[in-house]
Design a protein around this nucleic acid. Structure first.
Length: 462
RNA sequence: GGCGCGGUGGCCGAGGAGUUAGGCAGCGGUCUGCAAAACCGUUUACGCCGGUGCGAAUCCGGUCCGUGCCUCCA
């Protein structure tokens, strides 16, 4: 497989560190609120990468973190972090908020059919000891200093600081809008933050430096290190993490281990809504519930995500999602042909499989793969001549790759089958009223019919 | 202001120096009890301005627009 590596800014051949077993880390959500469909699109893209790797025969160790220890809000809200702020708003503790939204997130993974094993989703607060250990290691290596509010990483002690992001450190200093405070350099960052002296936080822990909580970047380094080892195959995340979060992760991990943190860095671009960025003020931060209330399901959204490629900025509108839903229904209709009478048309499933594989292996060119698949779906829409085993194997393979649950669809019931027969008798008698009435009945059960020259085919409309 | 990424027809999007991507939507037709589908035909695009080529959507420069980060941030 070829993958774009942010480290080299090139598409490279992917080769695993260890044969057949890949370590894969992706940045998860901060659980102080519901993820937007933009966040979900990212998680679906990580899932697509994981499925493509499994298609190529690799076993996968995929870890995703949940950031359940709060972080400061962007506009310096008196040191109050997102979790604690939400907690106050909802009159709960930060722990309750984190638990609530963690559960919500995990339910959402099922909704979108994201294939990460539940045990591989880990919480930052379960790794406090490991995070403290990492800071100790950095301290003894001479990479830290203490200020009145925390322990900081001295970015000048890591020679390659900002290398992946290609940061121009001198330029950054010039453009800095905020004073350094007690920090020695603009790019230094907190490893451990002290609890405010006058306030009791919901979330705080003892440490050798005093009561407090871990810095923002620390959890990913500590979790990756303890779950996947010093060097991992692939680290994935959103494009916005390149300059700060991943830059700092690399600095602290590599300073501690003296090993490369990740061989491949995969960053996915953002989703826009109606051509604009997702923001609370625009009110376009749609959630999973918004999809459902408009009659869409998680698989429709997954189909939408598959239609574009992860490195491009993509645009979401309800109209485009409607198209995606339509395509998913047509694909499902093709899959449901396995229950129905064969047609005469020949189709080369092996070539189709090769073409789809090739597109996925080419830096996850999912939109190309979907257009190839779509051409097939069009061509067989009136049935085709297939070998049962070959078709089933193909569908099974495709389902594992796309995660669209194509094989979950059951055959129609004996009663529904009987209705189709009755309708065809009515058609023979030219009793059109009766034929249309039966068609209407089936449609109420989400079964639509199309009459070809030879027979009547059905497909599901949901 | 600094450092990045991107701009393809009504829409989604692939490709990436010469050869019609594909799909959706549209229009005309074949077919059809109706519907749906299918099939045939049809609409030739790469933000703008320059440059280098026999030839540029594709390379180079500039510019405009969008977007990410530079804020103790996922």
């Amino acid at each position: 497989m070829k993958l774009y590596n942010t480290g080299s800014r090139k598409v490279e051949d992917f080769t695993p560190l260890k044969k057949d077993k890949i370590s894969f880390y992706s940045c998860g959500p901060t659980v102080y609120d519901k993820p937007t469909i933009g966040n979900w699109a990212s998680f679906i893209r990580y899932d697509i990468l994981s499925r493509a790797l499994r298609m190529d025969g690799y076993e996968l160790d995929w870890i995703m973190n949940i950031t359940d220890v709060g972080h400061l809000v962007s506009d310096a809200d008196e040191g109050e972090d997102k979790l604690e702020k939400t907690a106050r708003r909802e009159s709960k503790t930060a722990w309750q908020i984190a638990e609530h939204y963690s559960r919500y997130f995990i339910d959402g993974l099922d909704y979108f059919n994201i294939s990460i094993p539940k045990k591989n989703i880990v919480r930052a607060t379960d790794y406090i000891d490991q995070q403290i250990e990492l800071v100790k290691k950095l301290e003894s290596g001479g990479h830290t200093y203490e200020t009145s509010d925390g322990v900081y990483f001295d970015s000048t002690t890591f020679a390659d600081y900002g290398k992946m992001a290609r940061l121009d450190l001198s330029g950054q200093k010039g453009g800095a809008r905020v004073g350094l405070g007690e920090k020695k350099h603009a790019t230094d960052f907190a490893l451990w933050k002290f609890s405010p002296k006058d306030k009791k936080r919901d979330m705080e822990w003892d440490s050798p430096w005093g009561k407090g909580f871990p810095g923002w970047h620390l959890e990913c380094s500590a979790i990756a290190l303890s779950e996947l080892g010093e060097t991992i195959d692939i680290h994935a995340g959103g494009i916005e993490h390149i300059p700060v979060h991943h830059t700092n992760e690399i600095a602290q991990s590599e300073s501690a281990t003296h090993k490369i943190l990740a061989k491949f860095w995969v960053h996915n671009n953002h989703l826009q809504i109606d051509g604009q960025k997702i923001s609370k003020s625009l009110g376009n931060g749609y959630t999973l519930e918004d999809l459902s209330s408009k009659g869409f399901n998680g698989l429709d959204f997954r189909m939408f995500v598959l239609g574009s490629n992860y490195r491009n900025e993509s645009n979401f509108t309800w109209e485009i999602l409607t198209e995606a839903k339509q395509k998913r229904i047509e694909l499902q209709a093709a899959a449901d042909l396995r229950y129905q009478t064969k047609g005469k048309l020949k189709a080369d499933l092996q070539k189709l499989k090769r073409d789809i594989t090739e597109a996925f292996d080419d830096n996850l060119n999912t939109s190309l793969a979907m257009s190839v698949l779509n051409s097939f779906v069009q061509s067989v829409s009136n049935g085709f001549d297939y070998d049962e085993n070959e078709f089933m194997n193909f569908l099974d393979w495709l389902d594992n790759l796309l995660g669209l649950e194509l094989l979950d669809s059951k055959d129609i019931t004996a009663g529904q089958m009987e209705l189709i027969k009755e309708r065809n008798l009515a058609r023979q008698d030219k009793d059109w009223a009766r034929a249309d009435r039966i068609r209407g009945e089936l449609l109420k059960e989400s079964i639509a019919l199309k009459d070809t020259d030879e027979e009547t085919l059905w497909y599901r409309t949901n």
